[in-house]
């Protein structure tokens, strides 16, 4: 019978040693909301589960206006939205982490796990990309940093080496007059996987013109999809319905969804347009409030 081994290391070093020994057969357990189901059904072959929640660095959550936000890879979603300062500074991230599953999921599921699970439909990833987040990876050869938009390589696959783990995510402090939002479309009002998700951020200059914007999409490609040309199209434009529609059209054209049980190609492409425009409108409102 297939048995699973388990360890709950208290130091990063111990965790890395286990990864070095067991490689691809070992998985880091954060909230477990994906991994435990995958291991239980055999959808993912796992021999060694390494609980990351007793490693202080993986549970670290801190915001500093100078350095930005650091989210340890195993920090559960609820700690992010329950922190008033983080929610205020990163409303687009709060949008995403407060709709991942229900309350019972949010008490366990982590942003780091959401990223490492590498589902194209992960809610937090477009928001992270919109915020220019980077992933801090640690392995036997030391640390390296990867922009989140380059972290996932295929459904369920990432840039992590077999002996590496995701230590934390880092989100720079949003510039003044900026706003962000994450919107997703699901058939119910909760508990569904995104049919489409859109994360955006935008920054205004002192005249109210858009100085920069980033747009990323969920569930319309094999990985979370960053569409730089959609955000770039807004730079230098006034935030108008027309410029938003143009950006939305670019995002829509960039999307390459499939038909599956959660949506059709046609509906998904259409939703990318609608949600991109709506997310930009919400981000704009927040940018103006941020002042």
């Amino acid at each position: 019978m297939h048995a699973i081994q388990y360890a709950a290391p208290r130091t990063l070093q111990d965790a890395l040693e286990i990864l070095q020994e067991y490689g691809a057969k070992a998985r880091i357990l954060a909230g477990g909301t994906d991994l435990i189901v995958q291991a239980g059904t055999g959808a993912r072959s796992v021999d060694v589960i390494v609980d990351g929640k007793r490693i202080p660095e993986l549970m670290h959550l801190a915001f500093d206006p100078a350095d930005g936000l650091t989210i340890g890879a195993a920090v559960p979603c609820c700690r992010i939205y329950e922190d008033p300062q983080i929610s205020r500074r990163y409303p687009g991230l709060a949008d995403a982490v407060s709709i991942i599953g229900g309350m019972a999921i949010q008490g366990r599921a982590s942003v780091g796990g959401n990223l490492c699970n590498a589902s194209p439909a992960a809610d937090s990833v477009p928001a992270l990309i919109a915020y220019r987040a980077t992933a801090l990876i640690v392995g036997p050869k030391g640390e390296r940093e990867v922009p989140v938009e380059r972290f996932c390589t295929a459904p369920g696959r990432t840039v992590l080496g077999e002996d590496e783990l995701l230590l934390s995510l880092h989100l720079p402090t949003p510039p003044p007059r900026s706003g962000a939002a994450y919107l997703r479309f699901i058939p119910r009002n909760e508990m569904d996987i995104a049919e489409v998700g859109v994360g955006v951020s935008l920054t205004l200059d002192e005249q109210g013109t858009i100085s920069g914007a980033r747009i990323a999409l969920a569930a319309v490609a094999p990985t979370p999809l960053f569409v730089p040309e959609a955000g770039d199209s807004l730079a230098g434009s006034a935030p108008t319905e027309e410029s938003f529609r143009r950006a939305a059209q670019i995002a829509r054209d960039a999307s390459r969804p499939i038909n599956d049980i959660r949506g059709t190609i046609e509906h998904r492409k259409h939703l990318v347009g609608v949600l991109t425009r709506r997310a930009l409108e919400r981000a704009l409102e927040r940018a103006r409030q941020a002042g």
Binding site: A8, G32, I36, D51, M103, A104
Partner: peptide, 16 residues
């Protein structure tokens, strides 16, 4: 409730 926090017990390993 796990340490006072609502969780699905099917998504928690007992060893944790």
């Amino acid at each position: 409730l796990l340490d006072g926090r609502l969780v699905n017990s099917c998504l928690v390993l007992a060893v944790e």
